[in-house]
Write a protein that binds this DNA or RNA. Structure first.
Length: 591
RNA sequence: GGAGGCGUAGCUCAGCUGGAUAGAGCAUCGCCCUUCUAAGGCGACGGUCACAGGUUCGAAUCCUGUCGCCUUCACCA
């Protein structure tokens, strides 16, 4: 039983004995720093049931608690707040349990059911950019957090390897550079293919301009440009399985996958299951037929199939074209069902997709519910805001995208410059240094993006936004490294338990912060928000740094105190490591 | 026009199921390195929580309306 439950039960009992009234709920909060105490009972919430002066009521309850619970050492009442001080033995016991617990913060998996987390899901016609970076970091981190909260997780993505956009790159490559390969150019495969996508667009624009000069209007010109018509023909050929087109498609897609693999590795993300749109886009059709039978869908005169969601406050949504081909929705319905078939232990899914698709997922989830799938109520759209630049939105056609590979490289370079300026790493081998620049630079980037509430828009200024001070990854990494230094120099056995009679307030506040970590994980899992972990970790580190600065650890005379403080430092470091694992950020042993 | 999201210090962001005097970092200005890593600590300055109502012991938080920014409402994906 945790302390809240103990206090809850006692207060319920106290109210019954003192005021002859039954209550069910009690309202607690952590005591604010300005006041003495550890946990606060809000007496105001009682006034509904018990009439009287809140201060008097609080005092009576406080007296009762001190008399009846040994862990409650004293109390004070301010307005309607009953601040309860817990005995130091409580904090100590809590700490030693945590210190001995290798899996501190992790809840053992109790249930067999699993979650599937989808993220990344890029198109294969251009390289990954800053928007994908946010997506990947969020998806990966949420998957890790859900794991920590006690559930099995499969990470997955659906790769959009089909469609007119791929054909555009293929066509441009055939026409303008058919002897170029990643090997011959030294370019990453995704970059090479991306270049041809841009090339296509340039040609397309040129042709539109020519047509317009000949007197066509803009709309016509857009549809009639020869290069576009050719791309459409190519898509048709692909759909009929034309050997040459498919071979080219396979070749160029493979280049892109090889390129993506490097980027994913650099980012530190991975997947347990891959789905390809080319293999899944037809899957939904049979369920459309079933939905037609059961009346979930209906057919219009032209044979297109729709779902009427007007009763749910939404619109009508098309689920199958009049020519019988699949739309986006058809495919997503099929993919969801397929995933449950492939992984029978999965009973919930998380889709990490930008907020411009909020409506799409609302509709998708609703349709799956209407089709009668039990798991459809456990679907969650992890929706996140755009990443904008100071100049405005990123536009691939205008060359204002921030490339994922370039960005990570730039961060590493920034870390190098700052480290050299500070002269922190003298005496390290070049290999060690490079590894550190990498850890620090990536840490800065990942932390910067993850600390922001997913649903909020991020304003990303590549020049100034990444800082190494304050609420940043490097600041936390630095604290971790400093603690490792303490542990290296602690040439005594700090693993044995000691009991120190008096805890300083500084130590106590670090202990309290530590104790809340498991709750932070549960909260983050519930809200699908790595930001909670990030900000929690920052608070812990701030608290610790303030402690570190004001009380000596190795320097103090008393061995017991020395041991205890070293243990405390170690536990803080372990917790940082754990939190950063959940965020997908590495931690350095030295800095 | 319908639907959804956001609006907190000059800037970037926290603020958990409604609770005490709204918190950090950056920037600006003061202190603190003979102390385990100063990428640090302590302090000052900085707020009409977009605006107006409502709900109640109590609202940045919940409800309604207004304004501003963003997204979405395709036989595109």
């Amino acid at each position: 039983m945790n302390i809240k439950e103990i206090l809850h039960n006692s207060i319920v009992k106290a109210v019954q004995e003192l005021f002859d009234t039954n209550i069910e709920n009690t309202d607690f909060q952590a005591t604010r720093k300005e006041f003495e105490g550890d946990i606060t009972f809000v007496v105001f919430s009682l006034l509904r049931y018990v009439k009287g002066n809140p201060v008097q009521i609080g005092t009576q309850i406080g007296d009762y608690l001190v008399k009846n619970i040994t862990l409650v050492s004293k109390f004070n009442v301010v307005k309607g707040f009953l601040n309860i001080s817990l005995d130091n033995s409580y904090h100590l016991e809590n700490f030693y349990t945590a210190f001995a617990d290798e899996n501190f913060g992790f809840k053992q998996a109790e249930t067999k059911d699993a979650t599937m987390v989808e993220y990344s899901s890029p198109n294969t016609n251009k390289p990954l950019h800053l928007g994908h970076v946010r997506n990947n970091l969020l998806g990966y981190s949420v998957a890790e957090i859900i794991k920590a909260a006690g559930k099995k997780v499969y990470k997955t993505q659906i790769i959009n390897d089909r469609g007119i956009h791929i054909c555009k790159s293929m066509l441009a490559w055939e026409r303008f550079g058919n002897d170029e390969t990643p090997e011959s150019t030294g370019l990453k495969g995704d970059k090479l293919v991306g270049n041809y996508y841009v090339k296509f667009d340039q040609e397309y624009k040129k042709e539109i301009a020519e047509l317009e000069a000949k007197g066509s209007n803009k709309e016509e010109a857009k549809k009639q440009a020869p290069i576009l018509i050719e791309a459409q023909k190519m898509l048709q050929k692909w759909e009929t399985g034309d050997k040459d087109v498919v071979a080219l498609w396979k070749k160029m897609n493979q280049w892109v996958y090889d390129g993506f693999a490097i980027t994913y590795q650099e980012m530190g993300v991975d997947f347990d299951a891959l789905y390809y749109e080319s293999q899944t886009y037809l899957l939904g059709k049979e369920f459309i037929t079933e939905g037609l039978k059961s009346g979930v869908f209906y057919k219009k005169e032209d044979d297109s199939v729709w779902c009427d969601l007007t009763k749910d406050g939404l619109d009508e949504k098309i689920v199958l074209r009049s020519d019988g081909t699949a739309v986006y929705m058809t495919q997503d319905i099929g993919t969801a069902i397929q995933r449950i078939k492939d992984y029978p232990d999965v009973n919930s899914m998380v889709y990490t997709v930008g907020n411009e698709q909020n409506y799409h997922f609302k509709v998708l989830f609703l349709i799956l519910k209407k089709l009668g799938f039990e798991w459809a109520k456990n679907l969650y759209h992890l929706s996140y805001g755009m990443v904008d630049l100071p100049e405005g939105k990123m536009k691939s056609r205008e060359g204002t995208v921030v490339d994922a590979d370039d960005l990570m490289l730039e961060m590493t370079n920034t870390a190098r410059e700052i480290s050299q300026e500070l002269g922190k790493l003298e005496g390290y081998s070049n290999e060690e240094k490079e590894s550190l620049y990498n850890i620090i630079g990536k840490g800065a980037l990942k932390y910067y993006i993850l600390k922001v509430d997913p649903k909020k828009r991020i304003l990303f200024d590549p020049k100034e936004s990444i800082d190494f001070n304050g609420n940043t990854g490097p600041f936390i990494q630095y604290t971790y490294a400093r603690i490792q230094s303490i542990l290296r120099k602690a040439n005594f056995d700090y693993s044995k338990n000691v009991t120190i009679a008096e805890l300083l307030n500084k130590e106590k506040s670090v202990l309290k912060q530590l104790a809340e970590f498991p709750d932070a994980i549960q909260l983050a899992a519930k809200n699908y928000s790595p930001a909670i972990i990030a900000n929690y970790t920052y608070d812990l580190v701030k608290e610790y740094n303030s402690f570190y600065q004001s009380v000596p650890i190795l320097g103090c005379d008393d061995l017991e105190t020395k041991i205890f403080r070293t243990q405390l430092s170690k536990k803080v470091a372990d917790t940082i490591k754990l939190a950063f694992d959940l965020l997908g950020i590495e931690v350095p042993r030295r800095m």
